[in-house]
């Protein structure tokens, strides 16, 4: 078989060396470094892009946090304002109510005073009327005037007795 023929061994070994060694040198020194550099450049580019993306992402997150903080602050402020105004309205309403109730109480007291005055006056009048009535009734019944002082004391004793 030609594949096993020793007579061609020397030539094949010579040409193997003469092709394999230059090929090795060409690939080692010229071809492979270019592939390596391209792949490294690509790697670096991808890494840089990823880094940039990460930076932009953190920036966006910071902006979001900022935004949320602003919203929260505004809400807190709004609630404080609402609370404050509600408080002031309540205070004003309480003050007005108090003023009104004092005024009403004064009016009630005044009215009560006038009622009791009227009552006292009416009671006084009732006493006089009773005296006069007693005097007149006794004059009619007994046929003689008993006098104003007598009638008065009689009425007083009856009123006192009645109340006893």
């Amino acid at each position: 078989m030609p594949q096993l023929d020793p007579s061609v061994f020397s030539s094949q070994l010579f040409w193997l060396a003469l092709t394999f060694i230059p090929l090795y040198l060409i690939l080692w020194k010229a071809a492979l470094p270019r592939v390596t550099s391209v792949r490294e450049a690509r790697r670096a580019r991808i890494d840089a892009d990823l880094e940039k993306a990460a930076a932009i992402k953190s920036e966006a997150e910071a902006a979001l946090a900022d935004y949320e903080k602003t919203i929260a602050e505004a809400m807190a402020k709004a609630q404080a304002t609402i609370r404050e105004s509600a408080q002031s309205f309540a205070n004003e309403a309480a003050a007005q109510r108090e003023a009104l109730s004092t005024k009403l109480a004064a009016q009630v007291a005044d009215a009560e005073r006038r009622i009791s005055e009227e009552k006292n006056r009416a009671l006084g009048d009732i006493g006089d009327i009773a005296n006069e009535l007693t005097q007149a009734a006794s004059a009619r019944l007994l046929g003689g005037d008993i006098g104003a002082d007598e009638a008065k004391s009689a009425v007083k004793s009856i009123v006192a007795g009645g109340s006893r």
């Binding site: 020397s10 094949q12 040409w15 394999f20 071809a31 592939v35």
Partner: peptide, 26 residues
Amino acid sequence: DVSFTNASLFMTIAMVLISAFMILGM
């Protein structure tokens, strides 16, 4: 004997093709 045989020719062709593939491709 270092005659340029069929084997030598095809080793040379392989060398040239690989170098061309690698260098022209890049």
